[in-house]
Design a binder for these strands. Structure first.
Lengths: 384, 384
DNA sequence: TTGTATGCGTTATCAC
DNA sequence: GTGATAACGCATACAA
């Protein structure tokens, strides 16, 4: 028994030289040769539930270590039909807006033994080109944080490719989704602002092609109508800082006055709006104007802003997406009905919106603020 | 000839049903059968410089389209020894600090016909575990924006795995790198501040294990010593907002006074420092205190801050890294000497540091600012 | 230009 | 528990 030890080592050295000379890769055959077992035995040593004797395992592992052997995932996936790779499709925009998303997804997917193959979309129209690549790489599933058409979804079905939509919903087709309820978030924000007496609203929209921004806007407008408040002045925006200033000026110009509240499609836009109001137009926030955003990005919490906003639970959503996709992959074959996981946005009570009722005791009888905001509602509207 | 057309179509339909029944994938053999050619002909149709007649190409492509055939990248990489996959190793920290990096890398690498397999590191110590995965996936090369030890690099060499280090340099070993000259950036910042009369410096360090932050700090300290200025008060930080406020208080406490200038390891820290100074301690910036950051993140340019900072040319650096790696991959075999591409940081002249000489004409004769800043230098120091 | 035959490195199936 | 052998789906050398 003792004699095998030096044998394995010297054999490994000689064999390694041979491999280097022939400029080949180290394969399981090489390990088998050095360990003095069959190639099948080597293969089994690198699998989970395989039955191998301790002695064999030890010999094989030793030989593998000496040769720097690592199983070839390409060859494995060819036969197992599992690449252990998950594609993540994400619009560059979305990646910049939610920088933590990719990292969170990668972590959770990694924890489930798979890796993320990244497909970034400079424009949403790149989807077609990118999907062709996705099919090639034989990924086990796809998380899409980008706009997919109904035809795209159909192709996923046809190819039996597991798919989870992230923050995009598609009414026409049943498909696995993880989303935040942006429609409800828009409603909630308006409810709170209206309850505090805001009457005249401006909205700086987010990206036109973003369903997230559209849902928020729809929710807000819908709730305003329900409450019998005037229709908001809506101006376009691009979810960036500059859109905040431009939007604010456009709203004031269209309205002929400063509105009671401005709802922005994103925090960065809200911050742009805020800075413009305070530093350029001399409008006091929140005394003369309330400003609210969406997403609760890190900077919204900074002392200079302390923004009133709504947070999507990104970490939980990322985890849910990873979990959902991996579950679908693991039970592949057994095709189950698609699942929708919807999370609620969390209200962040910052300091850029007056959310106390106008007749709150903290305000004196001379309600300058109430006058600036127009007549105000006779009574606070029920919150949500 | 005309008769072949319906033949291909009906054959395709029948064949597709067969494949579905057997629950197989569509392979090049299936396409060959339907198109009435050999499998190698099909293979050639999906390669670049292969010689195929127009007629064959047309028949094959038609059959492929009808069958939804896509070449299997795993099988291809097995024989070509090219996966067309590039691994990107990135610390989660770095991803949050430079959200655009991943997207830029992905775009440029995609433009060169490859995709990014993402490996995020929650902790820098995860490198070992992650590298084992990297070898498995048979990637063509690696871009590492994480700390690698000399032993790690040695393993890349041993496996002949092309590697580009991003923003990490390693003196001990020759390796391809793309970096920004952070050492020089630190020196530059001190030179400018010193030239404007700042004498007493505080430094809020970045992450301890980040070579970027260390280089900046070393450059700054070195330049201060060269200029004969007092050694700076250095306090720890974590590149986050909270570190700014904590660092500012710590520096003031250690110094027993407000320093002339504080250099922060990152913009976010600088913004935290700024907010604390202005909103909590009532220190006027830049009149009583100059604050500078690093990186020129988007928010540094906002009206509320307008930060004095230094920008790394991230887009160009990302492009350089992608280009360098792909070049190395394409000439694989011909091992060339490693290359280092070093970019310079760009100074952003914001409004949070007094960079005019203290005796500038815009200041009146009663130099409150100069007194706050101590004696000031008798004459401006030469810039750089 | 086209077809035949072979190999890439692994897992899976079956005897033993 | 172990070893022979057959896939997996493609690209390539070579003959035609």
């Amino acid at each position: 028994m003792n004699r095998t030890k030096p044998c394995v080592e010297t054999a490994a050295i000689a064999h390694k030289a041979l491999i280097a000379r022939e400029a080949r890769r180290v394969t399981s055959y090489d390990v088998a040769l050095v360990a003095g077992v069959s190639q099948s035995a080597v293969s089994r040593c690198f699998q989970q539930g395989a039955s191998v004797s301790d002695a064999t395992l030890a010999r094989v592992m030793k030989a593998a270590a000496l040769l720097d052997y690592i199983p070839n995932a390409a060859a494995r996936s060819l036969i197992t039909r599992r690449s252990n790779i998950v594609a993540v499709l994400i619009a560059s925009q979305a990646n910049l807006q939610y920088p933590e998303l990719l990292g969170e997804l990668s972590q959770h997917i990694g924890a489930r033994g798979r890796r993320v193959l990244l497909f970034t979309l400079a424009r949403e129209t790149d989807v077609d080109r990118v999907l062709a690549d996705v099919w090639q790489y034989q990924v086990d599933g796809v998380i899409a944080a980008a706009r997919l058409s109904s035809e795209h979804i159909a192709e996923f079905d046809r190819r039996r490719m597991p798919l989870v939509l992230f923050n995009r919903s598609l009414r026409e087709r049943a498909v696995n989704t993880v989303t935040c309820d942006h429609h409800e978030a828009g409603r909630m924000l308006v409810s709170r602002l209206a309850a505090a007496g805001h009457r005249r609203f401006g909205i700086i929209a987010g990206l036109e092609d973003s369903s997230v921004a559209q849902e928020r806007r729809r929710g807000a407008s819908e709730r305003l109508a329900e409450l019998g408040l005037p229709a908001p002045v809506v101006v376009p925006g691009q979810a960036d800082y500059a859109s905040g200033a431009a939007g604010l000026r456009a709203i004031i110009s269209a309205m002929g006055a400063v509105p009671d509240a401005i709802i922005c499609g994103s925090d960065v836009t809200a911050i742009g709006c805020l800075d413009c109001a305070r530093h350029e137009l001399g409008i006091e926030v929140p005394r003369q104007l309330s400003v609210a955003g969406f997403d609760a990005v890190e900077s919204s919490n900074w002392l200079s802003y302390n923004l009133t906003t709504l947070r999507q639970p990104m970490p939980r959503m990322a985890m849910a997406a990873a979990e959902l996709l991996c579950t679908v992959i693991d039970r592949s074959g057994g095709v189950a009905a698609p699942e929708r996981r919807v999370f609620s946005a969390q209200f962040i009570n910052g300091a850029t919106a007056r959310l106390e009722p106008v007749f709150s005791s903290v305000l004196g009888p001379a309600l300058g603020a109430a006058q600036v905001h127009g007549t105000g509602l006779p009574a606070p509207v029920a919150i949500m």
